[in-house]
Design a binder for these strands. Sequence first.
DNA 1: AAGCCTTACGAGGAGCGTAACAATA
DNA 2: TATTGTTACGCTCCTCGTAAGGCTT
Lengths: 94, 94
Amino acid sequence: MDLKKLGYFVVLARHLHFTRAAGTLGIAQSSLSQQIKVFEGELGVRLFDRDHHSVSLTAAGKALLDDGVCLLEAADRVAGQVRAAAAGPVTSAT
Amino acid sequence: MDLKKLGYFVVLARHLHFTRAAGTLGIAQSSLSQQIKVFEGELGVRLFDRDHHSVSLTAAGKALLDDGVCLLEAADRVAGQVRAAAAGPVTSAT
DNA sequence: AAGCCTTACGAGGAGCGTAACAATA
DNA sequence: TATTGTTACGCTCCTCGTAAGGCTT
């Protein structure tokens, strides 16, 4: 489970549009296509149904969108807490 | 926040011994040393105090050990749930 | 013709191993 | 000297971008 690819997935899941999602992420659209495919391969699950003119989430994709966002936020929070712990090891209160 | 490096950190934090931790992880000891250093750099925090014959957790390291394990487990759980969602979209009960 | 996703191919960076080095007991 | 952690160097794989291809409207 790679957090980087998970982030790509979340952005794409919100746009449901490779070109725009790639723009948001600041990478090429083809790279996003590749990474999503790799991510699906790693999970062994198809996350999106892509027809030539419509991208939609599969059931697995919907499940991952919910939990994935939480996971990403949790990771961010942990990083912040670690930095805080290093800066000022507050025992309990202010 | 890279989950792979976080996993390395957790194993090292439990062994408090680079050589053994590297053995557990199945990588070279020097590689572990490098990855931990990179990880510390990414977080901007020192995780371990290393003397030549003793490795110990800093305050930040201890904080990360607790939360990091949870994060890793959460990531694992999410992956499992996604696969389950793909296999059998159980609405509520059996 | 225009828009959208995918595949092919090449460049750059990250991760890893081997080897060499420094310090402690 | 044996053990432990760090640094240097080279290799391999992964990620990304550009270019070309195929399908739909």
